[in-house]
Design a binder for these strands. Structure first.
Length: 216
DNA sequence: CACTAGATTTTCT
DNA sequence: GAAAATCTAGTGG
């Protein structure tokens, strides 16, 4: 008989149709789920994200305009935007912006929840804490690739999606500058679960900055 | 521990 | 032709 667990909710399109930085913050604690055909069910709890805004954000692919590779950022929220970075690493974003705006959220790190062995196997038996730590490592562990997933609808209740997870208190969320950029390095648009040991990089020394309280 | 270089491919100028 | 939202292994202190 099927057990009656807590209801599992795939985050709906309305979740992704708000301010990009707020969505980045609210994705912390949610579960990224991938059920590859014939493969293990893979679930990881998101602990680090970055917001990339419109053409006014020098670090955003949107600066290349709506006719570039980043055209997906102009499209409907809730789809995956997956691209290849440095010719090697798949990077997974979620198109996320208010209507009439442009933006996406890069998923940078997560903690394995289900399918840990399969994830570790793909990552050369890496330690659990670091198996999905870093945007390239995360897609490797979860078998996410541009060829298969770019443009995928993350709000559909099958395949690749994001399910509602634990809600983080404001005090658990810190904001820092974004990682690995050559431009637009000053803005604080990286959001991390302060309690996680799976961050791609530690929170910088100095005064940690709490995320502005959401839903106040 | 801090730092550097090399891998490798897509996209844009 | 150069740059790029990275990662790992290797070197040196």
């Amino acid at each position: 008989m099927s057990e009656r667990g807590p209801p599992v909710t795939t985050l709906p399109p309305s979740f992704y149709a708000r301010e990009t930085d707020r969505i980045a913050r609210d994705l912390l604690g949610q579960n990224l789920v991938h059920e590859p055909p014939g493969g293990d069910r893979l679930v990881a709890r998101i602990v680090e994200t970055e917001a990339y805004l419109g053409p006014e954000d020098p670090a955003s692919h949107a600066r290349h305009g709506p006719d570039s590779q980043a055209r997906r950022m102009w499209e409907a929220p809730g789809a995956a935007y997956v691209y290849v970075c440095y010719g090697i690493h798949q990077m997974m974003n979620v198109v996320a912006h208010r209507e009439g705006d442009i933006g996406a959220v890069l998923v940078r790190a997560a903690e394995p929840v289900e399918g840990v062995d399969a994830m570790r196997a793909r990552r050369g038996e890496a330690p659990v804490a670091s198996v999905a730590s870093g945007p390239g490592n995360l897609t490797e562990a979860m078998s996410i690739r541009r060829k298969e997933h770019d443009g995928a609808d993350l709000t559909a209740p099958s395949g690749l999606r994001v399910e509602a997870g634990s809600r983080l208190e404001g005090s658990e969320v810190l904001v820092t500058t974004r990682i690995g950029l050559t431009k637009g390095t000053e803005r604080r648009l990286r959001f991390v679960d302060a309690g996680s040991d799976s961050l791609s990089r530690p929170v910088p020394e100095g005064e940690p900055v709490k995320a502005r309280r959401q839903n106040g």
